[in-house]
């Protein structure tokens, strides 16, 4: 009989709050800081890789994950919960999109799918909310003709690439998803322990028309403000959404093949950025 009923653990308090979700946010706010910055030609995701012991092997730890060839994700909060969401995001991007349309989902669609999974955990029986906030970064192909985007930019008098993201124009998109299932698009943001400090820093350093290289630079500077340990290729993790990385295809000379836009920087690449800081 007991297994016949299952009640949601997330219930309203008399004041109208869902305290379970607030507790989940507390878990996030104790997590390691992660940040994301959107540039005109890409996005950078960055976080600190903290190991509890000098005996741990940091190369086996990975907090930034590829979801689709053009979308990547980072978290702050509980690691195990994050891995569940990475699995679900990868799965749903195929079952709910690629196997239907033979193309990968645009960033917003993927974000909505992940957000739905997280929302359902706040209203279903016998489960607790996910103890993570996510930063999801991706590049959309868009459906508008290139010349139309340029024409529109001309009206506004700006001379940028024109692709500032979204399903129609295409380009980079950066989203944050919270345990409640709400999501927000950002130009730049941070989550976790030092999110407030990091965001204040980002507000000062962010400029319109930022390029990816500058964004990586700013990401490292921001991380430096908040980081507790040493900064090197082993302790920092960076994922970028940039130009198609054809060298990651594994094949050459295949007509029409385009490499993934999302990739993680190697420790060596991170070291190079750090020396130029």
């Amino acid at each position: 009989m007991a297994d016949r009923y299952s009640f949601s653990l997330t219930t309203f308090s008399p004041s109208g709050k869902l305290v379970q979700i607030e507790y989940a946010l507390n878990a996030v706010n104790q997590g390691v800081t992660a940040l994301g910055i959107k540039a005109t030609n890409g996005i950078v995701l960055a976080t600190e890789k903290k190991s509890s012991s000098p005996l741990a092997d940091p190369s086996s730890l990975s907090k930034i994950s590829l979801i689709t060839p053009n979308i990547g994700m980072v978290y702050s909060g509980m690691g195990p919960d994050y891995r569940v969401l990475v699995d679900r995001a990868r799965k749903v991007s195929h079952t709910g999109y690629k196997r239907i349309y033979n193309e990968y989902p645009p960033t917003r669609i993927l974000v909505q799918d992940v957000a739905r999974v997280m929302q359902e955990a706040t209203q279903s029986g016998g489960v607790r909310p996910y103890g993570v906030s996510l930063l999801i970064a991706g590049w959309d192909e868009g459906i508008l003709p290139e010349e139309e985007i340029e024409a529109k930019e001309g009206e506004e008098g700006k001379k940028l690439s024109g692709k500032t993201g979204g399903i129609l124009k295409g380009g980079p998109m950066l989203y944050q998803v919270d345990p409640s299932g709400s999501y927000f698009p950002w130009k730049a943001t941070a989550i976790g322990k030092s999110a407030t400090t990091a965001k204040t820093f980002l507000e000062k350093r962010y400029t319109e028309g930022l390029e990816l290289e500058d964004a990586v630079h700013i990401a490292l500077l921001t991380l430096k403000e908040t980081i507790e340990g040493e900064m090197n290729g082993e302790t920092i993790e960076i994922g970028i959404v940039g130009p198609p990385a054809d060298h990651l295809l594994g094949v050459e000379g295949v007509e029409g093949a385009v490499g993934p836009r999302f990739r993680k920087l190697t420790p060596q690449e991170i070291e190079d950025y750090l020396t130029n800081l």
Binding site: N102, P106, I143
Partner: peptide, 9 residues
């Protein structure tokens, strides 16, 4: 998706 479907899709 707040957009029209493309023929190939």
């Amino acid at each position: 998706e707040e957009r029209q479907i493309a023929p190939r899709t």
